[in-house]
Amino acid sequence: MFRDIGGLVLLFWRTLQALPLAFRHRRKVLEQFYEVGLGSLLMVCILSFFIGGVLALEIGPVMVERGLANYLGGIVGLGLCRELAPVLMAVLIAGRIGSAMAAEIGSMAVYQEIDALRTMNINPIHYLVLPRIIAIAVGLPMLLIFADLVGWMGGALVCSTNQQVAVGMQSFLSNLRSTVEIQDVFHGLIKTFVFALIIGTVSCHQGLATIGGPRGIGRTVTKAVVNSIVLILILDYFLTHLLVQIEK
């Protein structure tokens, strides 16, 4: 994976250079945006609802036991929007969208469609990579907002209905409102934006480098998903460290 870092950086730089062409490729951006956004929305909502619920279920009884039940909304709210939702949504999108991107571009490489683009003097980075990276970089942070809201609702519902926790919904939400600030949501959004760039770049890079037949495409998809997740988890630590320093 680390062998590919140079290629990844180069591809990302070339995509950045192509950004002024984004408006020209708006139709392709919208098609990709539909896939990333609407195509993933239901999955994101289901996943985040249960993550919020599990978080409340795990932390709730311990906090109630120590007389800290009033802080439960804040803890669940912060945990979700700053860490769990960004990372888990990125992992979900790496599996759902990153794999699809790598497979589609990989199959185009194997069946000479990318060669055909080059012979027509059409740059594959402008035609294939740019729309995908823009779509995922815009779409994933938007999905995160839904994930935060639905996850908080999941946490609130579990707290109010579970006998061991028994914190009212009003009390949970009121503590969440007083604890979670807009900068906490931005903290998650910044992380998600970086993760989206990683998923888009890694998946497109793997796709373009595909060789061989169907087995090559299979290897590409596996590498795209695994490399994206590994990079997301490693960068998550350093990004958190940096953002916490900035917030101080």
């Binding site: 589609e104 199959s107 185009m108 069946y111 000479q112 469609e113 060669d115 055909a116 683009l117």
Partner: peptide, 9 residues
């Protein structure tokens, strides 16, 4: 191209 190399999408 020998295979045509049409864009399948």
């Amino acid at each position: 191209f020998q295979s045509g190399a049409l864009l399948n999408s």
